Simulated scan of single mutants.
Amino acid sequence: METLILGHCILNVNSRAPGIARWRNVVRPVWDIIRLRRASFLQLPCPEAVYLGLRRWWFVKEQYDNSLFRELCRRIAVGFSEILEENNVRKFKLVGLGISPSCGYRETQSDSSWGGRPREVDVKSNLKPEPGVFIEVLDETFRKYKFDYEIYDLPPAVIYPEERTGSRMYPKDFESCIREICSFIGYDCEQLPLNEYEKLVDLDSRGGMILVAPAEIVTKNRGLIERYVEEDYGLMLIPTSENLNPEKEIIADMYVKQIENHLNVGHKILLMMPELSSNLYRKTLEFLKKNGLLERITVV
C-alpha cells in the first residue's frame, strides 16, 4: 500500500476556519482506515493556518491566489519533497479536501467578487472544476521531483456542513462518501462502523486540543497516539528527517508558526519530548524555544 500524504486538517480539524469543522479532532473515517489498515502516512502543514491563523474568514481560491501565498505553498512543497526523497518515498497518494480553496482537487470554491466589506455570500454554487492553490503547487512540485503519485480529495459531505456538498463530481450521502474514500485508499469499508459516524459529526465542534509529536512515534507507539485521539486531541505529526538543509528546515518553521497561531486562539498544545527523535523534530523544538513558545505549551 502506498504512503498517504494527508492534507493537514484531516488529522487536525482544529486548523480549519471557524464554522466549517464537522469533527472534534480528526476526520474519523480516515483516521480509522489508517489505524485499522496500519497505513503509512505523512501529514502536511496547513498553509492557510500558517498564513492567516485560526480566526480567518472563509475564503475562495481568488483570495489565496496571490504571490505571497503561492510562495508559502511552494516552500512547503519543496521542503516536503526533500523529506520524501530522503525517506525514499517516491510513490504515494495525496489526499486533499474537496472544494477547499487551497486543498481541493476535483473542485475548488471560486468567486472573483469576494473581497472588501463582509457580507452574505453564496457557498453552494461558487464552485469551479479545478484544484485549489496548494494542490496546484504541490502537483507542480511533485512533477519536478518525478514522484509517482495520485491525487484525491475527500468528498465535501464528510468535512463541511450540509450546505456544502460540491457538484455531481462528489457523492452526496455519507455512506457513499466513506465507500469512495475506502476505494481510493484501498480498504474494505465493511470493517468500518458506517452507521456510527454521522452520530459523531457536528457543526464547528473543534475540540481545541492538539498533540505535537514526531511522526516516527506512530510506528513506535501507535497505541499512545490512538489514546490521545480517543481523548479528542488532533494531531500534528512532524515528519522524519536526519539530513537537514534549508528547504527541510522551512517545514519545521512552518509547523512552529502554525503552533503559535493555535496558541494565539487559546488552543491547548501538548508537546511530546521523546528521548529519540529525528533532527527535524529537534529543529522544531529549537525554533519553539527561540520564539518563546515552550512556556505556553504543556510538555508530556
Rank of each mutant, 00 (worst) to 15 (best):
Y187H: 15
I178P: 09
S205N: 05
E198R: 05
R222Q: 10
C182S: 13
I185T: 11
V212M: 07
C189H: 15
N221L: 12
I217R: 12
I217E: 07
E190L: 15
L203D: 07
F184Y: 14
D204K: 11
G223Y: 02
D202F: 08
R179Q: 10
S205E: 00
R222K: 10
Y187G: 08
Q191R: 13
V201K: 14
M209H: 07
L203H: 04
V201C: 02
Y187T: 07
T219Q: 14
L192Y: 10
L194T: 00
D188K: 15
R179C: 10
L211I: 07
P214S: 06
E216K: 15
G207K: 11
E180S: 13
E196G: 04
I178K: 05
L200Q: 00
Y187C: 09
E190R: 15
Q191I: 04
D204R: 09
S176D: 04
C182H: 12
N221M: 09
I181K: 12
E198Y: 06
Y187F: 15
E216Q: 12
P193R: 07
E190W: 09
E198S: 08
I185N: 08
E216C: 15
L211D: 06
V212W: 04
I210H: 00
L192G: 08
N221A: 13
S183T: 08
V201T: 06
E175L: 06
I217V: 12
E190Q: 09
I178C: 07
I178M: 10
K220E: 15
C182R: 12
L192H: 12
C177I: 00
T219I: 01
N195W: 03
D202W: 05
A213R: 06
M209N: 01
K199T: 00
K199D: 00
F184R: 13
G207L: 01
M209Q: 11
I217F: 08
L194G: 06
L194H: 02
E198P: 04
I210E: 05
M209E: 04
E190N: 13
